[in-house]
């Protein structure tokens, strides 16, 4: 056997040729470095003195330079509350909005996976029309918003039946599901302005409540989409059996369905948690001082401090360490959840 052949041909179907193995492992190690190097660079930068940065790059702690905790001290001790408050905001907003999105989204997904809905197209059009009229009335003619809302609601209830009689077409579960998921296509910036005005009107601007409510809605489509796919795989028998055993729908949902969908809940929950944790645009619109979250704080370093890389590195590390830790802990679930979403579409 020639040397070339030995190098390029695998010994068996399940193994690689020596040359192939070199290429494959080479590629994997190269990409590992692409992934790790930026993280490594932030880590060491957070331990550098300003002189280590400005004098040109130094690469190896203890060899090139002596690590120093001054940046960490500055962020935690000197700034103290100014760091702590956004950090706490981020934690509260991310956790609460994730919990709410998971609860509300799972309930909606379950409902869609088990019951048949047939909303009248006419009612929906009527609702949108009244909504538009109400906005014009409030914004254009200065009608107080609560009067407009009450009038619109009353008109809707009065006219819905009549509208349903004139136009019989109705939608199905698939349409509702698509409608909810399609909210994800909506760029958040389109909704951000009116939401900003809305919260300003009710005096909730720059509060955690505003961020929690908004994040919950923004992440609902993902929860509904992924959880729907998990719920349809749970056999209906179990729920029918439980209903004959005497359980109410609520007891079935919380006692049978949710525990069985746990892998899906973990995967989806983690995904939503990370999205909420990292969210930037809406936080930028809706928070200024009180409810400021970490991404906004980090981004603001740009303007206030210029390139003080050592402080920024500490802040970035503070943001990504918990997430990376969670990811390592639960990554098996995430991959599964993402695949489900992508495959089922």
């Amino acid at each position: 056997m020639s040397v070339l052949k030995r190098l390029t041909e695998p010994k068996s179907l399940d193994s690689m040729s020596p040359l192939g193995a070199v290429l494959v492992y080479g590629g994997l190690i190269l990409w590992s470095m692409v992934v790790l190097f930026p993280l490594y660079w932030i880590a060491i930068t957070s331990l550098k003195l300003p002189i280590h940065v400005s004098a040109g790059p130094v690469y190896l702690p203890f060899v090139d330079f002596l690590p120093d905790l001054h940046a960490w001290r500055y962020i935690f001790v000197d700034l103290g509350n100014d760091t702590l408050r956004p950090y706490l905001n981020s934690i509260v907003v991310a956790l609460v909005s994730t919990a709410l999105a998971m609860l509300i989204g799972s309930m909606a997904a379950y409902s869609l996976s088990r019951l048949e809905f047939a909303p009248r197209l006419a009612s929906i059009l009527l609702f949108l029309l009244l909504g538009a009229v109400m906005i014009v009335a409030v914004a254009g003619f200065g009608v107080p918003w609560w009067i407009a809302a009450v009038v619109a609601l009353a008109l809707f209830l009065l006219l819905a039946r009549a509208a349903g009689r004139t136009m019989r077409a109705s939608l199905g579960n698939g349409d509702i599901l698509f409608w909810i998921i399609s909210q994800r296509i909506l760029p958040p910036v389109v909704a951000a302005l009116p939401i900003y005005v809305m919260f300003q009107t009710v005096g909730l601007l720059d509060t955690r409540t505003a961020l929690i409510a908004t994040y919950t809605t923004v992440n609902l489509p993902i929860v509904v989409w992924l959880m729907y796919d998990f719920f349809v795989t749970i056999p209906k028998d179990l729920e029918e059996s439980a209903s004959l055993d005497g359980a109410s729908r609520f007891a079935i949902f919380f006692g049978i369905v949710l525990p069985l969908a746990r892998p899906g809940l973990v995967a989806t929950g983690l995904l939503v948690l990370i999205l909420a944790w990292n969210e930037y645009l809406l936080a930028l619109f809706l928070s200024s001082a009180n409810a400021q979250t970490m991404p906004v704080l980090v981004a603001a370093q740009n303007a206030t401090r210029g390139p003080q890389w050592w402080y920024m590195s500490v802040l970035i590390l503070l943001m990504i360490l918990p997430v990376i830790f969670l990811t390592l802990l639960l990554q098996r679930f995430i991959a599964k959840g993402m695949l489900l979403g992508a495959v089922k579409g």
Binding site: E240, S241, S243, L244, D245, G246, A247, S248
Partner: peptide, 8 residues
């Protein structure tokens, strides 16, 4: 179903 007192 839960009020029919039947088991399945």
């Amino acid at each position: 179903p839960k009020n029919r007192d039947v088991a399945m």
